[in-house]
Simulated scan of single mutants.
Amino acid sequence: MKKTALLVALMLLCGITLQAQFKPLAEGATFEEPEEGFAKILQLKNGNTMFIHITYKKGINVRMYNASYQEIAVTHVDPSYGKLDHGSIEAVFELAGNAVLMIRK
């Protein structure tokens, strides 16, 4: 019985200290979480962040955030490859200030 009480007390103590480990660094605007397709996040050299979401049938949605996590642009791109049957994002990187996506069709 004493071992059980000691174990419970130890678990409570660990639970209290573990919650102190999480510290929010920043929060941005909320948006609907995508349920299909592929998503990537790209940190640009100028401090901006791009959230890129590619769906099989609807194309590419891009959200851009500035360095203080405020949304500055939302756009939709209809790619030249049309609709994807089974694809994936191979790479996302910045080249001369532009976002480059390598997509396997």
Rank of each mutant, 00 (worst) to 15 (best):
K2F: 08
K2D: 10
K3R: 12
K3N: 11
T4Q: 06
T4V: 07
L6M: 14
V8T: 13
A9M: 09
M11L: 15
L13A: 14
C14I: 15
I16P: 02
I16C: 12
T17C: 09
L18V: 12
A20K: 01
L25E: 11
L25G: 08
L25M: 11
A29F: 07
A29D: 15
A29N: 14
A29K: 14
T30C: 09
E32T: 15
P34C: 00
F38I: 07
F38A: 06
I41D: 03
Q43D: 06
N46I: 00
N48R: 07
H53T: 04
I54D: 04
Y56N: 01
Y56E: 05
K58V: 06
G59R: 00
N61L: 10
N61R: 09
M64P: 03
Y65C: 01
Y65A: 01
A67Y: 08
Q70S: 06
E71K: 15
I72W: 05
I72F: 03
T75Q: 12
T75M: 14
H76L: 10
H76M: 09
V77F: 06
G82P: 01
G87K: 03
I89T: 02
I89Q: 02
E90P: 04
E90V: 14
V92C: 04
V92E: 03
V92A: 03
E94D: 01
L95P: 03
N98K: 12
A99S: 10
A99I: 00
V100H: 11
V100P: 05
